[in-house]
């Protein structure tokens, strides 16, 4: 189905945006990794969020999630891989699915880690970001999965299930991918595996990978006071827009982005 607003990221910024879209009675979908993979989940204690001193990361995420669910926010677990703007709507691919919305709120946090040597050159030639998309092309062949969380392990199991011979690298410090014209091997932390394909399953795609042409400044998404980016109908909130990387700032920006996105959907949505 088509939504008014699709939110990428289920942390405080994304959830705040989503409940504010619902407050305007618009349909909203939040696409995110499992809550337990949020960097906030690891916070033992948060002392600077107004009114909730000493709250833990998991407590905060659970209560925010419950609030969003009660408000009628829809959720989808998965990772957004591509986006495309076509005829007044944004089309977004999530694993093997596709959804569309009039407006987007980008609240995916900060993507950590640089690209590996060989990654850019061999992308589409054996380097893939999507196991469900490209796995079937490597049935019966050796592949590597570079994973950073439980959802990556699930994708590795999926690959094993369809007959790939999987070498799994868990949160490696450094990797390099070798091959001329196509992937031949990968080396992570000194260990080399001869493989035909490397699945790089990072928790977050870099915003500029998701949205070609998105303006950034100092490594962060450039936004105005309405949290609008330079792309039509794309708003951003939270850590991806810059410092300070704090929950209160994310929630405030999420509110503005949610309201702006809902207003944009009203003006530009197709008769909704």
């Amino acid at each position: 189905m088509s939504y008014d607003v699709l939110v990428i990221g289920g942390g405080p910024a994304g959830l705040s945006a989503a409940i504010n879209v619902r407050a305007r009675n618009k349909q909203v979908l939040v696409v995110s990794n499992p809550m337990e993979e949020s960097p906030l989940w690891k916070a033992e204690q948060i002392d600077n969020y107004l009114g909730l001193p000493g709250v833990t990361g998991p407590e905060m995420l659970r209560v925010m999630h419950r609030h969003a669910q009660a408000a009628g926010v829809e959720f989808r677990e998965g990772k957004v891989l591509n986006t495309m703007h076509m005829e007044n709507a944004w089309y977004v691919s999530i694993g093997s699915d596709m959804e569309s919305a009039a407006a987007i709120v980008l609240a995916g946090g900060v993507s950590r880690g640089k690209k590996f040597p060989g990654e850019e050159e061999l992308l589409g030639k054996g380097v893939s970001y999507c196991a469900t998309c490209d796995g079937m092309l490597y049935r019966g062949r050796p592949v590597a999965v570079v994973g950073y969380g439980d959802s990556a392990r699930k994708e590795a199991s999926f690959l094993e299930g369809i007959g790939c011979k999987v070498t799994y690298f868990h949160r490696p410090g450094s990797c390099s991918i070798q091959g001329s014209g196509k992937v031949e091997s990968i080396t992570c932390d000194g260990k080399t595996a001869a493989v035909d394909c490397v699945f790089l399953l990072r928790p977050t795609m870099a915003p500029t990978e998701l949205f070609p042409g998105l303006a950034v400044e100092g490594g962060y998404v450039k936004v105005d006071r309405r949290m609008a980016t330079n792309l039509p109908g794309v708003f951003a909130a939270g850590d991806c827009t810059g410092l300070p990387l704090q929950v209160a700032k994310a929630v405030g920006e999420g509110l503005v982005a949610g309201q702006s996105a809902a207003a944009y959907a009203v003006q530009n949505g197709q008769g909704r």
Binding site: N82, S93, I94, M98, C130, T132, C133
Partner: peptide, 13 residues
């Protein structure tokens, strides 16, 4: 292929 989300985006194009 059916199981490919990005393919579904390219299809209308």
């Amino acid at each position: 292929a059916d199981w490919c989300g990005p393919c579904k985006m390219v299809s209308p194009v």
